[in-house]
Structures are given as C-alpha cells and as structure tokens.
C-alpha cells in the first residue's frame, strides 16, 4: 500500500472507473441514463453513499468484529441510502421521481459494498475517503457521459436544451431499454480500444 492519497483518488477516474473497468453497478448505469441530468444525479447520490460508508467503515474497522462485518456494512450503507432518499424527496423532488426505485437500490449496488469490503475495512481513513470519492466521481462521469450520448440521440437535447434544428427526428430507440444496453456495450468497447488497465 505504497500509493499516495491522490493516487487512490485518481485510480477511480481511469484505471478502475466503474462501470467500464470494474463491471459493477450496471443496473443504475442502464436504467437512469436517459438524460445527462439523471445520470449525474444518480452518480452524485451514489458518491455520497460511497463516501460516507467508506469513511464510517474505515473509522470503525477496529471495532467491528470480522464475523459480522457484512451485516454491519449493510446497516451503515442502508442508513446513508435512506438519508439520501429523504433528502432528495425534500429538496430535489423531480430528480427523485425520475430515479424512482433506483435510489433505494443503491443499497444493493455492488460498487458500494465492494469498496467497503475490499478497501475501507483494511485501510485508514484518508485513503478510504479518497478511494470512495474517486470511485464515486468516476461513476458520476461515466453515467453523465452515457446519459449525454443517449439524450443527444434519443431526444435531440443536451441538459434539456435542443441541440439540433426542429427537423431532427429523435432516435427513440436510444431512450428505451435496447438503446441502453447497446450504447453501454459500445462505450465499453471504446474504453477497451483506448487502453489497457
């Protein structure tokens, strides 16, 4: 573990960026990326949970008995997910509506539990926070990018602003389920072409 804190952060943005390099968290990546706004909103909600759970797990790593660590992780993660759920209902209701059941489902997002188990439980606080933040920001960027592609082609808009003239016929396939799978598949292919991990 000779990595510096900044390296822990940066790895989440490129070498381990989910869902491209770490093929985890596919469901939200497919479901909520109909638009950039939803993609980024989901990414930020996940980042918050990831950051808080990594921080708390790392803080408590000497107190939690290893035998029941998974149960403790689940309680910690579920608590923060509920916090996000309530906050989004109170302050960004339209986004909460758009993301629907995928907010409570952050709890079963393998990325969050995976980071708690593989990283935060074994590392001190600062690297854990950097790790959580890095992976979270990476996830947010990835969802934003996927959302941009789908929104641009599927609705002809970007962040709600029309990008093409009125003659543009939206490519409705892209906002439906098949488009989600195909565009994520193509983006993965693109990432593979760009470089090895």
């Amino acid at each position: 573990m000779a990595k510096t804190i900044s390296q822990e952060f940066i790895k989440g943005l490129w070498t381990e960026i989910p869902p491209f390099r770490l093929v985890l968290g596919l469901c939200p990546a497919l479901a909520v990326t109909k638009s950039v706004e939803n993609g980024i909103g989901m990414g930020l909600a996940t980042t918050f949970v990831l950051l808080c759970s990594n921080l708390l797990v790392s803080l408590l790593r000497n107190i939690i008995p290893p035998k029941i660590r998974i149960a403790c992780f689940i309680i910690i993660i579920a608590t923060f997910v509920t916090v996000v759920e309530l906050m989004m209902q109170a302050y960004t209701y339209p986004l909460y509506q758009a993301l629907g059941i995928f907010i409570p489902l952050i709890v079963v997002n393998c990325i969050v539990l995976g980071r708690a188990e593989a990283f935060a439980f074994k590392n001190p606080i600062f690297p854990s926070v950097a790790d959580g933040l890095g992976i979270g920001v990476g996830f947010t960027l990835a969802l934003g990018a996927l959302g941009a592609v789908r929104e641009l082609l599927g609705s002809g808009t970007l962040l709600g602003h029309a990008m093409f003239g009125p003659g543009f016929q939206p490519f409705a396939f892209m906002v439906e389920a098949p488009g989600a799978f195909v565009s994520l598949g193509l983006m993965l292919c693109f990432m593979n072409m760009l470089g090895k991990r």
Partner: peptide, 22 residues
Amino acid sequence: PKPLQDTSIGLITAGFVALVFI
C-alpha cells in the same frame, strides 16, 4: 473483434434481445 469481446458484445446482444421483448 478484440475490443468488443466479453462484456461489451454481451451488452450489445442483450440490447437486441431487449428489442425483441419490446
């Protein structure tokens, strides 16, 4: 093709299966 292998082609295939289900 190499970059498409594994998960990538899997997702694209899933897309077409989803199209059938539509």
